[in-house]
Design a protein around this nucleic acid. Structure first.
Lengths: 309, 309
DNA sequence: CTAAAACGTTAGCTCAGCTGATGGATGGTC
DNA sequence: GACCATCCATCAGCTGAGCTAACGTTTTAG
C-alpha cells in the first residue's frame, strides 16, 4: 500500500517545483525529501521523476498520483472538519496568512474576540501578500488566508478553494493637512501634478490605482513605491505624497485629509480555505469573528468630509 | 493531519469487532492496536470507542471516520491499479483466497501458466471458504477471492466489490462403480434410499443439494458431512456414499460412475476483488489465466455416460 | 467459581526516517 | 569562459515512533 506522507511530498513537489522548496515548506531537509521520493519511486515501480537541468520533472505517472493524492487529502480534511463539529469546544491551531493592512487593523481585534470565546483555539498569523498566501494555502502551510480584490481587477478564483467575503472596505484618497500638498480637490484630476505613494506594479492595489487615475485623465507621478500601507500613511502625514488608503485603517488615518472617491469604490476583503476545511468549526469561528469585527469597525469609521465628483 | 494507518486500524475494527481480531488480521499484537487507537482518539479529540462488555463499540464519530477511510482506501487502490498499468511488467504479490475444489483443480494450473507469462508476479493461495474469504477481502487480507454460486441459491453481492464469473461448472452425481451403492438410476429419486456425502448445512452447496433432492421428492440421508469435496470423492470411490461433485475435479473423478443431473445444472465460479483493484494488471492477468485454464479443463472433461431425466 | 478471553498499561527494544556532510551537475553572472 | 550559487543524490549515524512482551483487570461462559 502506498504511503500517504510520501504521496504528500510528491503532491507538494508538483506545486513547488524543486525538492529544496518542498523541504522548506514541509520543514524537512532536502535530503529527507530526496530519500522519501526515492522510496516512493521504488514502491510505485515506475519512474516518477526525471532530471530537467538542475530541477526535476514529474512524469505522467507521477502527475496521476498527484491527482489521486489531491482527492485523498481533501477527503481527510472533510473528515477532520466533520470531527471538529463533534468536539466539545473548538480547539487546535489555525494557521492564518494575511496581508499587512488587515494585520494592522482587524486581525488583532478578531484574535482578542476569538480568544475570549474559544480559549482552546490557538491562532497563528503570518504576514504574507495575497499571491504567496495562496501558494501557502495549497501547500498546507496555512489553513486560512486573507485576500483582497479591487474594483476592475478581479482575482482569479482557484480550484479546490472556498472563498468567503467578510467585508467591503472603502478606498479613500488621503492628503496632508498642511504643506504644499494640502488641497481641497473637487475632482481627482486636480491632483494630477502631485507626487504619489503607491503599491508596487503588478499588485492588484496598484493596478486599481493606475486604472482610477487613468480614468480621471492622468498618469500618477510615483514618488514612493511600497506594498506597506502604514508607510503610505506616514508619508502622507509628513506631507511627502498623496495616497489611496483603505478606510479600514481607522484611527491610523487620523490627522490626514480624507476624501471620498467618485462612485465611492470599495475593495472586497475575503478569506479563503481549502474546500475540505470550509465547514471546520475553527474556520467558521474565525470567519465569523472577522466579519463581526469588520462590521463594528466600519460603524466606527468617521466619514470623509470631502466628496469628489 | 489524521494518520492513515491508524484510520485503517479503526476501519478494520469496525469489521472485526474486537481489537484482538484486528491484531490477528493485520499481523500485530493487540497491544499495538490498543495503543494506536488511543493515539487516534487523542488526535481526533473525540471519543471513538466505548466499552461494551469485554468488547468495544464504535461511536458515531468513529463510524463517520470509517466512512471517510473507506473512500480514501479505495482511492489509494485506484492509484495503485493505475500505476500497475504503467509498470513495464506485472510484478508484486497477489494474495488469493480460494475454496478447496478450485485449489485442487484450476488454481495450481493457473499458477503455472501465470508464472510462465509473468515471472515477477508472486501469487499466494490461501484455502478459505467463500464467506470468510469475503471477510478477508474487505479486511485487505486478500487481494482476490474465489466464490461459487449454485442454481437457486444466490450469493448476496457485497458493496465495494467487483465480481467476475470465470466459468460455469457442471454439477454431477457420483456413484461407486462397485458394491451395494452401485446403480444405474434413471431418475434422481432412484437414489432416495442411499447414504449421501454432503456439505455442511448453511453452505451454499448444501442448500443447493437439499433443494435438488427435495425437488426429486426425497430428503437425502446424510452419512458424511464435510466441506471437503476430495473427501467426498474418496467416500464414493470406497463405496460408502453417493455425492454431488463438480465436473471441474476432472481426473480425480476417474473410477467413479458419473451421472448428468436433470437440466444439467451448473455452479457459477467467480472471482471478486475490492472495486478499486478491478483494473489492476495483476488482477486482470490472474482472472484471464484462470478463465483460460477453466476453458481448457472443460474441453478435456469426459462427458458423463448416463443422463437423468 | 473457575477458566478463558478481551482490553489497557508499562517497560524496553528496534528500525524507519531524519539530519548533516560530501560530491557532482547545472545555469546565471561578470 | 571562469566562477559561484543552487540543486539533487548518497552515505553514515542518530533518534523517537511504534512495536513486542508481560502483567493486571474486567467480563462472560460453563
Amino acid at each position: 500500500m502506498l504511503n500517504l506522507s510520501r504521496l504528500r511530498i510528491l503532491h507538494e513537489l508538483n506545486r513547488s517545483g524543486t525538492l529544496a522548496e518542498v523541504a522548506r515548506v514541509l520543514n524537512y531537509t532536502p535530503s529527507a525529501i530526496s530519500q522519501q521520493l526515492s522510496q516512493l519511486e521504488r514502491e510505485a515501480g515506475v519512474v516518477l521523476l526525471e532530471k530537467a537541468g538542475r530541477r526535476v520533472r514529474l512524469t505522467d505517472q507521477a502527475l496521476m498520483l498527484v491527482q489521486h493524492t489531491e482527492v485523498i487529502l481533501t477527503q481527510l480534511e472533510l473528515a477532520e472538519a466533520e470531527l471538529s463539529v463533534a468536539q466539545p469546544q473548538i480547539r487546535g491551531t489555525l494557521r492564518v496568512a494575511s496581508f499587512q493592512s488587515v494585520v494592522l487593523s482587524l486581525a488583532p481585534v478578531a484574535l482578542s474576540v476569538l480568544a475570549e470565546i474559544h480559549p482552546r483555539l490557538e491562532v497563528e498569523i503570518t504576514q504574507r501578500e495575497v499571491a504567496p498566501a495562496y501558494d501557502g494555502l495549497l501547500a498546507h502551510e496555512f489553513d486560512l488566508i486573507m485576500g483582497e480584490e479591487h474594483p476592475g481587477v478581479p482575482e482569479p478564483v482557484r480550484a479546490g478553494v472556498d472563498r468567503s467575503v467578510f467585508t467591503q472596505d472603502a478606498m479613500l484618497l488621503a492628503l496632508p493637512r498642511q504643506g504644499p500638498l494640502s488641497r481641497r480637490p473637487s475632482v481627482l484630476s486636480d491632483l494630477a501634478d502631485l507626487p504619489w505613494a503607491l503599491d508596487p506594479p503588478n499588485s492588484t492595489a496598484r493596478r486599481w490605482a493606475d486604472i482610477t487615475c487613468r480614468e480621471a485623465g492622468f498618469e500618477p507621478r510615483v514618488r514612493f513605491e511600497s506594498p506597506d500601507p502604514s508607510l503610505h500613511v506616514h508619508l502622507v502625514r509628513q506631507g511627502h505624497a498623496v495616497a489611496f488608503l483603505p478606510g479600514l485603517m481607522g484611527s491610523v488615518l487620523e490627522g490626514l485629509q480624507l476624501v471620498q472617491l467618485p462612485g465611492n469604490p470599495h475593495r472586497t476583503l475575503f478569506t479563503a480555505v481549502r474546500s475540505g476545511r470550509a465547514t471546520h468549526r475553527a474556520v467558521e469561528a474565525f470567519r465569523q469573528a472577522l466579519a463581526e469585527v469588520a462590521q463594528a469597525e466600519s460603524n466606527l469609521a468617521p466619514p470623509p468630509v470631502i466628496e469628489l465628483k
